[in-house]
């Protein structure tokens, strides 16, 4: 497995797209800090971008890589290697290289601008952690899609749809249902609904560290108690679950699939 991981990691790290992705984050980080020297405000702006963009890139990269490396995968399958190792290795290769781009691309500019001495270091670290989680989650989901769809166009379609649903449509439905069922106590429903969308969950986790903690409390102590007490761990646990379950599913599918 490690060999395969190493191979696909090296393959991706050397590819043009990784550099483009890295360069994008570098430029983003530097330009945001250049325009706005306030580190904490920059972290907020960055959160908006990271929470939307990392899932999208994760999805597209994951699905592209798996479709394009299909022949190589078939070659590997002919070798005496466990399927589990092949797919897990490839998956981790993609996810790690993307996360590396994210962490380096944002980390370098912030380090240069002195995040290490700033009190925002924890918030920033948390943002990177959440971004990494999102990369792992959405790569796993997209690999699942590519394994289940031979047709590339269909696969791409599903992947984009998945991103669209979780990034935009889910929130729309969420908002409408909150407004419609205004007369009922909604606190618990709201908490539950955020748990079922990794993008929402990440956004709220970062926001609570930054600016809305007091605004949230307006509705009731429930949110605040939850997200500031054990809720942080439950939420991080949910993110782990969001990573582990798709990976398990993809391995199950990979082991049973007839290539």
């Amino acid at each position: 497995m490690w060999k395969i991981l190493k191979y696909s990691f090296a393959d991706l790290v050397r590819s043009r797209w990784s550099y483009v992705y890295l360069a994008f984050y570098l430029i983003l980080g530097f330009s945001l800090l250049f325009l706005n020297n306030d580190l904490s405000k920059t972290v907020i702006t960055l959160m908006n971008i990271v929470v939307v963009l990392t899932p999208m890139i994760g999805t597209i990269f994951g699905i592209m890589y798996f479709y394009s490396a299909r022949e190589f995968t078939e070659l590997l399958l002919a070798q005496p290697i466990k399927r589990r190792n092949i797919f897990l290795g490839q998956y981790l290769g993609i996810a790690l290289s993307l996360s590396l781009s994210l962490v380096l691309g944002l980390g370098i500019p912030f380090l240069i601008y002195g995040i290490a001495q700033s009190s925002e270091i924890w918030d920033f670290g948390f943002l990177l952690l959440v971004g990494t989680f999102l990369t792992f989650i959405f790569t796993a989901l997209s690999v699942n899609i590519s394994l289940r769809n031979e047709n590339k166009v269909k696969g791409f379609g599903y992947a984009i749809l998945l991103w669209l649903v979780l990034a935009v449509i889910y929130d729309g439905i969420f908002l409408i249902s909150l407004v419609l069922f205004d007369d009922y106590p909604l606190d618990r429903f709201t908490l539950a609904a955020t748990m079922f969308n990794p993008i929402d969950l990440s956004r709220i986790l970062v926001l609570l560290k930054l600016d809305i903690s007091a605004l949230l409390g307006y509705t009731g102590a429930l949110f605040q108690n939850f997200f500031q007490g054990s809720g942080v761990f439950i939420s991080l646990g949910m993110l782990v679950l969001w990573t582990v379950v798709p990976v398990k599913l993809l391995l199950r599918k990979a082991i049973r699939k007839d290539f």
């Binding site: 907020i44 959160m47 908006n48 939307v52 990034a167 935009v168 449509i169 929130d171 729309g172 969420f174 908002l175 909150l178 407004v179 909604l186 606190d187 709201t190 955020t194 993008i199 929402d200 956004r203 709220i204 926001l207 809305i212 605004l215 949230l216 307006y218 509705t219 949110f223």
Partner: peptide, 11 residues
């Protein structure tokens, strides 16, 4: 008021 939880979402 509960909808504040969607603050800063893309939607």
């Amino acid at each position: 008021p509960e909808t504040i939880i969607l603050l800063r979402s893309l939607f």
